[in-house]
Amino acid sequence: MNDIPAEGAACPAPCAKPVLDVRRLRKSFGARKAVRGVDIAVCPGEIFGFLGPNGSGKTTTMRMLCGLLTPDGGEGHALGHDIIRESRHIRLHVGYMTQHFSLYADLTVRENLLFAARVHGLPRPARKVEQTIHELGLGAYADELAGHLSGGWKQRLALAASTLHDPHLLLLDEPTSGVDPAARRRFWDDIHALARRGMTVLVSTHYMDEAERCHRLAWFYEGRILACGGVDDIITGSGLVALEAAGEPETLTVLQRTVQAALPAAQCTWMGEKLHISVPKELRDRAECLCREYGAECATTRPRMEDVFIHLVRIQDHAAEKAEAAS
């Protein structure tokens, strides 16, 4: 795990026939390398998360998968079609929900859905729309302008519009940003319901906690995948362990500085009144020693996704520096 190859972590699918299988996907915008070699394979009915900070290549990758952008390099298949040569065929069976609300604010809910239904060439669009409105409980809002809906309802509407044609593959680009927690939970329940019906879902987010709702996820950083797999696999695979130190604030402040000075590989951060320390397995004893030395109570806890991410980023940046120094 400590050695991340230049192309990023491999991401093999845990099934024989992945719905989506792309390799070495690359894309630059001018001098900026947005995606520098991404491998992804996703199984039918899987909810696959793209996790990573802004500008890490999540959106660009997604746009390449649905034919909105042409990759500079790489190859692969989605839904049995070549992603470069046959993107038009893929698009027929893909639902894409963009990062920002991208339905028409000056059309009503019903009009927006009708447009989506017609564009996808559904037979009897009006009937399908009424059915969808009913299913999603949008009935009360059917004749509201979409622009007047609350954030949560807008998201539900956008989801409805992008799943109206029963796509085989659903791409959701940061669907829950700016949505309140209750609406977010309901949204995720909807996504899981869709996946159980056999729809394959790719969802990007920068909320760490949302990652746990995905079956598997790929961690994007600077156009590469740092880690890939289920949340537990990633945490275990990172080789990190975590401690929680409790005590007087003054004591913990000193402890924080000491740990950071003594163990550069450790991360030490405040969680409420406690200090959360994560270290690579082999440094666990030394960290515990320091805790006891300063008279702090020390308990084992689960490493957080954040810890893993920062840990991996450090390794990556370190490797990049070394490569630069070598050349």
């Binding site: 909105l68 963009t98 604010a105 564009v119 996808h120």
Partner: peptide, 13 residues
């Protein structure tokens, strides 16, 4: 500007 073009382009249009 409104971001709806991205949606249009992702449809089969």
């Amino acid at each position: 500007e409104r971001g709806t073009m991205e949606y249009l382009l992702a449809t089969p249009l």
